[in-house]
Design a protein around this nucleic acid. Structure first.
Lengths: 360, 360
DNA sequence: GAATCGCCTCAAACCGCTTTGGGTATGTCA
DNA sequence: TGACATACCCAAAGCGGTTTGAGGCGATTC
């Protein structure tokens, strides 16, 4: 069933039927209702391909995911973000196009997406320092919204980000207030923009209390369970181990917890742990009661908001770049506690390490 | 730059240019080269929207992800599967369409996808018992491939699945061979087809050795860390606790490990654990050496194969349903060991439980 | 020299919709 | 009664490709 058939069946012209269905004012209300009823009855759905060609719009948004040689972007966070964005696209009658491309083809993919007219805009994921995608997209004139920010960009662009610096600053302050003085940072890879900002927040909080950062207490790596385990294990084996750990993700926090426990220590008593919780649907931080104290910000909600921002830019091309900074909330779980107790509990370890381990 | 412009610029008709670029034989090789060179020089890309309308093909594959009220499908496995499938689509010039829809709209979404012509076929995720999507897709005539199988389907359909029954049977046999007699099953939700098959494999292996299954040793739930922890903890607190645990995922295995360790036991010595490992890119089972003994099957590779199967069905609509069963490999890690030792180590617990815990 | 055959190219129809630019009643006003 | 809105509706021209059917042209065959 197509428009022409429906029109003849109704004894109307295709024009009128099209206008009736699309809510144009120059058609009689009675006629409109008749048309809508007939469309429903015959299960008529306008052909998307034809609409797209006729209107010149793609009615689709792209997400380009580079793969392989570089850092993997197909991660748990990504899946939840996509889910949030997808909800919005669906509600607005847009398609979501996922392009999985070898990373050396990324630039060509964006160009093709534009010139072949497959999408009206794109979301840029996982921005890095001086991210080349931003000037590229500006140049080819494809509307875009960045999830995160790209330090070093020269032109203005639309973005939506969590205040990572502030979140980690607050988390660090929280630990300092509990009396912790040696706080380990188990960060993500520090060519990622968010990781840089998190470290800055951590350092700012320490500096505000006049505490000099200890390079041995700052690690950076993949945000996996095993990497978290390794990093925490290494820090706990130091002559002066940390009494608290600040982890960049749920998974690395789980690894850190394992390191703490396998050292015979108790999380929340001997060693405090704070994680960043993206509120992923299948990696919940506890149920009613949170397990980890965490800086929390729903990445799914971020997906929704970024999608809405992008659809707005597409609908109103004139508008300038939009920016939105979300604050993470600090939620208190069972993984943090005062430092005094921790110091005492840990002292045997210190002593052991110091006596047998040479000069500090 | 469009076809017509390129044609006038070359002094040829649009027809010839189109044929030259699409490799039709009726155009002179010299002409073809001239056309291709010009296309490249002017950075000409045919408009996808026009191609789709003209050819009647969507050049796109859909993945419909129901969301919200029912069991969440936006899980780690899904992301990796999508990545694998996406690689194949990209290589074959197809787009991947992700539809995130409220689950009550799922049927309508499939119908719309077909009648609006957005896709040439779909992949069906996470099949359940008597899955209604299979008759639906047959009825509306949209080519599809199921990732997994749907027990109870009356018509034949194309699918690609891991031999879950066989995998869990082998894993159970492996544990039995190590001398374990009380093996706990920490399964996924058992309205999911794969979970049913895994339980069957587990039960088959027990039955083959004449071991009666103990309902207290069989749990079913979400495959999260915390659910795994809870299930394992409950089993370890039984009067006659298991000496081995069979977990349905990496995450629940991690939870089980935590339960084992927080009971003061050592994984691989006191309690053996086997997991199913989907070989996810960001949830690796160790690095060179696997941590967990596991039944392994790459879900990403499954995504690739399913996508290829679907593209095949789309290209050759005549061909009947295709089926492909992948075998999981059993990889030996550090989480399993002989049961004799475990029995001995655990005996104090048994005794304690038995003396203080009533009959049995 | 005419007929035949390949090879190459083209004009035009078509895919299914939107949208422009009228056209035709009907009603209103002077 | 004629002029002029107003309200509806339509024919036709796009959108940018593919594809059908036909024709031009030089070489070959009889």
């Amino acid at each position: 069933m197509n428009l022409k058939e429906l029109a003849t069946r109704l004894g109307l012209s295709p024009t009128t039927v099209s206008r009736a269905l699309n809510g144009y004012p120059e058609v009689n209300e009675a006629t409109r209702e008749r048309v809508i009823a007939a469309a429903r009855r015959h299960d008529y759905h306008p052909n998307t391909r034809a609409i797209r060609l006729a209107t010149g719009r793609a009615m689709a948004v792209g997400h380009v995911i580079p793969i392989a040689t570089r850092h993997e972007i197909v991660n748990p966070v990504f899946a939840d973000f996509i889910a949030g964005a997808g909800e919005v696209y669906t509600r607005n009658g847009h398609d979501m196009l996922l392009s999985i491309v070898p990373d050396e083809d990324e630039e060509a993919t964006y160009r093709a997406l534009k010139s072949k007219g497959n999408v009206d805009g794109v979301i840029v994921h996982a921005p890095r320092l001086d991210d080349p995608r931003i000037p590229l997209l500006h140049q080819i004139g494809l509307p875009f919204v960045v999830h995160g920010r790209a330090t070093g960009a020269t032109q203005a662009y639309s973005w939506l980000d969590v205040n990572n610096r502030r979140a980690f600053q607050r988390a660090t302050e929280f630990l300092l207030d509990l009396g912790h003085a040696r706080i380990g940072l188990i960060n993500g890879l520090e060519f990622m923009d968010f990781a840089i900002r998190r470290r800055t927040g951590y350092l700012d909080a320490l500096a505000a209390r006049g505490i000099a950062p200890d390079p041995a207490l700052m690690s950076s790596g993949e945000m996996t369970e095993i990497a978290g385990f390794r990093a925490a294990q290494a820090m706990l084996a130091l002559p002066r181990p940390p009494t608290a750990l600040l982890c960049s993700s749920m998974l690395s926090g789980m690894g850190a917890r394992r390191a703490v426990e396998s050292a015979g220590l108790v999380m929340g008593r001997d060693v405090s742990i704070i994680i960043h919780d993206d509120d992923l649907s299948y990696l919940k931080n506890g149920e009613e009661v949170p397990i980890f104290t965490a800086t929390r910000s729903s990445v799914r909600e971020a997906g929704r908001l970024a999608a809405e921002m992008l659809l707005g830019l597409i609908a109103r091309p004139g508008t300038g770049p939009q920016e939105r900074l979300l604050e993470a909330e600090l939620i208190i779980g069972q993984s943090t506690g005062p430092a005094l107790l921790a110091q005492r509990r840990q002292s045997p370890y210190h002593q052991g390490a110091q006596t047998s381990g040479g000069p500090l």
